[in-house]
Each structure stands twice: as C-alpha cells, then as structure tokens.
C-alpha cells in the first residue's frame, strides 16, 4: 500500500471524530480505497468510513490488506502532523507496521513514524441497502447544536419527520424541550439550507449520548445527512470530497 494525502487534516479529523467511539479497528485496504467498519463496545453504534482511492494522489494497493490499528496510538502519531502536511501511508505485504510520513509543503521537514499493527478479529456486518422513508440534509453545525442542547435535558431524543418538517423532542427530569425545523432554502448560502425528503412519516427514539459523539465529525463537512425509516438504525452521514464518507449508524430505542 502507498497512499498519499494532500492534506493530513482530513485523516486527523476523521480519526479524531471516531476515536472515542471505537478503539481497535481494521483499516481494510484494496484498490478502491481504505475502508473501516467498527461497532462501539456496546454494539449500539456502527462507524463506517470509506476513503476512496480518488481522495489520494497517488493511491496504490497491490494486494488487499487489513491494517489493525489502535486509534489511540494513531492519534498520538497524527498529532505530530500539521493539517497542511502531505501525509503518506505505506505498508508492505503481511505487514507488522504501517509507516506514516508527514512532509511540510513549504520546508524540507520530513517526519516519519511506524505504528505497530495488531491482529483484530472483528465481525464484519452487512449493511443492507435501505430506501429510507425520510432524508434530512442540514448544516452540520445545526445538528450539533440540537444534540448538544437537548442532551442537557435528557438521555434520549425522539425524532419525528412529517411533511410539516422534522421535530426533535426530549423529556427529562427538569422539564422538556423540542426543536423543529422546516424545509428551508437559503438563497444566499445553500450550505445553510434544510432539505427534507419524505416518502412516509417517521418517528424514532435515539440515545443522545451517541448522537453527541457523532457530531465530533462536524468539522469534516458543512452538511450532514440524516436518514430514517421506522424501526431501523438511523444513518448519520458526513460526506467528504471525492465521494469518500464517514457514516454512523445508531440502533433505535424501541417499545415501552
């Protein structure tokens, strides 16, 4: 494997966004790019990252390899990279280590690190293709604000989507709260628009603790997409350039 990223910031942010949710992960490398899938310890949330080969220049992966990496270790090493450094990942066949180099674009500084790899026996889940009943695309900062504000009151949030809009409601010991958003097109700045596409009404309840955690990815993208269908996990997607993405799935709370 040899994969060169123009900006180390991208990998720094991705790892930063998921390191509190998942610890030891396989980075599955093949000629289409670098993918990661991992559940949190309680098996309530699933992280799915795809960094497409087009996000790297150049990208070369001659044989499929799984790089088992501890994200705390990776974070320590990535801290040594500046956001605008050129980052290159290298690994041999059947590797013991992954090699990372950080090159400063404006000086002759080159730093180089090896991280020891681990054998990670992770179950890989098949994520079904789902036609979601409701898809909401909103500013990622707005979603962060809603989850943060409501998490101060309650452990759970009910998300209801109807043709009127989307409503986030919570009930807690001190009282209750809700935030409603309607479809809204911001003509000056499309990134601030709220787009809602609905085929049938949806009402689901989720743990706010996980949603707050997902919002650590807000720095990766101006926009976030929420996809919901009744009685299936919520998909929270942060799109990256070149069709790469960081997705989080969250199992709902169901029943009385």
């Amino acid at each position: 494997l040899e994969a060169r990223l123009e900006q180390a910031a991208m990998l720094k942010r991705v790892v930063d966004a998921i390191k509190d949710l998942v610890q030891d992960c396989n980075f599955d490398c093949n000629d289409s790019g670098i993918a990661l899938q991992a559940m949190d310890n309680s098996h309530v949330a699933l992280v799915s990252m795809m960094l497409k080969s087009e996000s790297f220049s150049p990208f070369r992966c001659d044989r499929n390899i799984a790089l088992g990496i501890n994200l705390t270790s990776l974070t320590k090493v990535l801290r040594a990279a500046q956001g605008d450094d050129i980052l290159t990942l290298k690994a041999e066949d059947a590797p013991d280590v992954v090699n990372l180099t950080f090159e400063s674009p404006e000086s002759d500084r080159l730093s180089e690190y090896d991280i020891k790899l681990m054998d990670i026996d992770q179950e890989h889940l098949g994520i079904p293709d789902t036609e979601y009943a409701a898809t909401i695309t909103l500013p990622s900062s707005e979603f962060s604000r809603i989850t943060r504000d409501l998490s101060a009151l309650s452990e759970s949030v009910a998300i209801e989507c109807t043709k009127e809009g989307v409503k986030f409601t919570c009930t807690g010991d001190i009282g209750n709260g809700s935030v409603s958003l309607r479809q809204h097109t911001n003509v000056e700045n499309d990134a601030k628009s709220v787009d809602i596409s609905l085929t049938e009404p949806v009402a689901l309840t989720f743990s706010l603790k996980y949603l707050v955690n997902f919002c650590k990815a807000a720095g990766l993208s101006d926009r976030v997409r929420l996809c919901l269908s009744n009685e299936v996990p919520l998909l929270v997607e942060y799109g990256l350039s070149n069709n790469s993405y960081l997705r989080f799935y969250l199992a709902p709370k169901i029943g009385d």
């Binding site: 559940m39 309680s42 098996h43 309530v44 949330a45 699933l46 179950e123 890989h124 889940l125 098949g126 994520i127 079904p128 759970s156 309840t205 743990s207 299936v232 996990p233 799935y249 199992a251 709902p252 709370k253 169901i254 029943g255 009385d256």
Partner: peptide, 14 residues
C-alpha cells in the same frame, strides 16, 4: 421506557 436495541439486530454478518 423504550429499550436500547443493538446494531446486530438489524444488520447481518457479512
């Protein structure tokens, strides 16, 4: 009180 489901309940092993 609704109970927290797990991801495995919805997504099968691949």
């Amino acid at each position: 009180r609704p109970s927290q489901q797990t991801i495995g309940k919805f997504f099968g092993n691949s």
